[in-house]
């Protein structure tokens, strides 16, 4: 379980999170949805221990993010691997730090995503880099998987591969996944719970199924309605 207790965060004059208070249920896939600049990436980075709240507290199973890094697999939006590394070198690098690295899963996913170990990060296409990032993140059996805009700027076919990889690989009840994106349509069917976030505050949260039934709309339509009304 990941808890945000009245968390606020500012960057200069910009409010990134404003009394953000939410619990991400254990063993479920949660979609963190909101427009650009709504605070999605800040909250993901906070869970990963890359930034700290100005006020409030974030805990993962009762522990501080800094103490939980070993349990977190974090996929940021940007390319964060050393460009001179090959996929094999990057995998070898991560293996040294995480006991939950699953070599069999890595080899299996490598084929599934049509990647090769000898591919150099700097020389592959954007889509391949996105797949490589995904491969290196989900090849671990991490209890917490954070994915920040994994579909951003990726073509439709690659998006499908990424989503299929996640569906194929998800261990229900064991793994807590948070999927942050402003592109809901593709992952609508994937999420158990949703959190709509705007201006650093929770706008709407709950079970995806319940929301769809209660409002008689898809998540995408709910988001459009919520944010249109807000504007």
């Amino acid at each position: 379980m990941i808890e945000f207790k009245d968390v606020s965060k500012r960057f200069g004059h910009t409010v990134a999170l404003d009394n953000f208070d939410i619990t991400f249920a254990k063993g479920k896939i949660t979609g963190l949805f909101g427009p650009n600049g709504s605070g999605k990436s800040t909250s993901m980075k906070m869970i990963a221990g890359l930034n700290r709240p100005d006020k409030g507290e974030v805990t993962l199973g009762g522990l501080q993010p800094q103490e939980s890094k070993i349990s977190i697999a974090y996929l940021p939006e940007i390319d964060y691997f050393y460009p001179w590394m090959t996929i094999k070198q990057a995998a070898g690098f991560l293996q040294a730090f995480y006991a939950d690295w699953d070599e069999a899963k890595y080899k299996d996913l490598l084929g599934f995503l049509r990647l090769e170990e000898g591919m150099k990060i700097a020389k592959i296409s954007k889509g391949q880099r996105a797949k490589a990032k995904l491969l290196l993140t989900v090849s671990r059996r991490a209890p917490y998987l954070l994915m920040d805009e994994p579909l951003s700027g990726i073509d439709v076919l690659t998006r499908e591969e990424i989503i299929n990889t996640l569906i194929r690989d998800y261990r229900e009840g064991e793994q807590t996944i948070i999927f942050s994106t402003h592109e809901i349509a593709e992952i609508e069917s994937l999420v158990d719970d949703v959190v709509f976030i705007e201006a650093g505050q929770v706008k709407l949260a709950g079970s995806a199924e319940d929301l769809r039934i209660n409002k008689g709309m898809s998540l995408l339509e709910i988001m459009k309605e919520e944010f249109r009304n807000a504007n």
Partner: peptide
């Protein structure tokens, strides 16, 4: 500059 600080800072060290 290369954003690899994201990788460094997310490592459990």
């Amino acid at each position: 500059k290369n954003n690899t600080v994201y990788l460094m800072m997310s490592l459990p060290v």
